[in-house]
Amino acid sequence: MALSRKKFLDILIGLGGFGSLAAFTYPIFSYLRPLPSTEAKVNTVKAGTASGFPPNSSQIIKFGRKPVILIKSESGEFSALEATCTHLDCIVQYKKDTKQILCACHNGIYDISGQNLSGPPPKPLQAYSVKVIDDEIVITTIVT
């Protein structure tokens, strides 16, 4: 089937149009895409003294740019968990009365080990390793 002159020109101009569109949009999208973070990845953080940390309490620690919740149970054991709720990204809190972790945004409940118990959170909170060295609390990423 012979290609008419008009059809040929239509295709040619159409291809040129698409090419131009791609040439416009690619730089725009690249510009809008944020640069990857250049901050060094943090693997260990010191979080104060164990003796100064009251039992049945919690504190949010800066783990690089990430918030980590450090909890001391009533029996004096430490646990550290990523403080960002697995549901929709809010920062969780430790409830002294129920001894559970609550995300106030949508009422998500986790236990002290980070296991999601009720509400919308689909996954447990990621755990960190906590060691007490010479009374100093050291939180470390768990390498899986």
């Binding site: 949010i60 809010c90 920062i91 919308p120």
Partner: peptide, 29 residues
Amino acid sequence: DPFLPAPEGIKPEWYFLFTFQTLKYLPSH
């Protein structure tokens, strides 16, 4: 403050409240 927990009773503007409340009632799966 990105390092403070979300306050209890936090709610969006009233016109997003119906979506917010529905999300609250949905189970994890």
